[in-house]
Amino acid sequence: MTKKLDMKEVKVALQRKVAQTYEPVKPAKQLGFIHHNVDCIGCRACEIACKDKNGLPPGPRFRRVMYVEGGQYPDVFAYKVNMSCNHCAEPACLPTCPTGAIWKREADGIVDIDSTLCIGCRRCEAACPYGAPQWNPKEQIVQKCNMCVDEIEAGRKPYCVMACMMRVLDIGPIQGLWDGSHKTTAIGPNDKPVRQVKNFADPELTRPSIAFVPHSKGKV
């Protein structure tokens, strides 16, 4: 491409874009996930519990346990970063949806999707910096984690959390998880939760509701 961008035009375009940005829902309480990156054995029971609960075919993975490794033999390290949907304060997926299938719940800030309204345009998938919306090739629609709202409404926790064999994955009010005031087995006696780990998109983009206990090599 040889054409030089006219920065003035870009500015106008950006302003137009900002003007279109919607006012995100400010929930009464924001729920979020927490994951201990070190103590997680990476077994992916959470992933399979989620697939089973949601009846997913091979392909879409609402929850994804990422394996990170580094160092040089024999001084190596490895840890896991476990994410599904981060139920962001300013979800990037939501405004991209042309049919209004995605919305943020006022009570708990969960970003839910009604896949019956999905036309499969996949814009949300492209917009999300965390890869949360998942394409279902069989149904030709996008689906994603809704933190098992049905379980939460029944006073329980999502299937992934209840599946965790190491008790390193949990949910809670995100502010309490970040400042350590919310009691959870995900945080050990000497652990300090953080909002961001290495290789993780800048939280300022969408303000994701997730906390991690990081590996020493995963801190930013």
Partner: peptide, 26 residues
């Protein structure tokens, strides 16, 4: 879901057979 989308549609959902791997509704 519809309230979130801001619309009202007449619901005519048919009850389906139980499927082992159905996505929605739960």
């Amino acid at each position: 879901a519809l309230a979130g989308a801001g619309g009202l549609i007449e619901l005519t959902m048919q009850d389906k057979e139980a499927q082992a791997f159905a996505y929605e509704p739960h």
